[in-house]
Amino acid sequence: MSATGAAEASPLAPSRPGATARKFVRLLQASWQDALEYRLEGAVWFLYDLLPPLGMLLLWLGAYREGSVVAGYDVAGMVQYYLGVIALRTLLNPHPEWDLADKIATGKYGNVLLRPMPLVAYHLAGEVAWKGIRLLWLIPSFAVCAFALWPYLEAPTLSPAHWIAFLLSIPLGYLTAFFLKMILGYVAFWATNAEGIFVFAISIEMVFTGNFLPLQALPAWVQAIGEWLPFRYFYFFSTQILRGTLDDWALLEGLAAQVAWATAGYVLMRVVRSAGIRRYAAFGG
């Protein structure tokens, strides 16, 4: 039994890495079946990733004049930014907190704790499967948007370093968001109105992830606050890599920040979860 596995798994769990991987794949398959069955629900949630940024893009398109540049973006750059946000947000923004809070509030989390596999793997499998369904909805929607906005599109001309950084930023951004939202979900161990807190968190997230506006368009003092928060590393950093405006040092700096935030998120998640589970033991029979 590995030290990592022993620390991560629930008390009853045998945690050989190979066994955990097999369980993860099985759970992924089961979650995929579940997500496929509820694909129409996935389509409704997908609208939340698609339409608000699309609305902001339409607003910007009405604002651009001939040759104007806004916050460093020409009109084509702005279109590409929002299309990037739609695609990356759909795929990289997990939402484990809602299910987590529901299970904690209803007492079903006890069943999760007794499952013989690491908790992170359990939650990750469900989230990844649902992202697969979102991808099914994203592809045709993205194709329609790309067709309508074709005159503004051009293939990014990036160096190999940029492509490598982009590919690395995808899982790192996802894990950063995943661990931080798990912490948010664990708030339900203490709060009865966790949903209200989630809506607050979504409001803050919308500002600092660049979902509605590119961060460069925000007032300077808001940008300064955003520098100290993890949200920009969810997917905004990846959109900036695709723009090709970051130099090699900025790429390294961004990737290092993603690793740091993901690691801090993981450690903090475990601390919060341990404290929460001790409290949770007081409920149920």
Partner: peptide
Amino acid sequence: FVDIVFLNV
């Protein structure tokens, strides 16, 4: 959000 747009245009 919309008001911020007018900081730029």
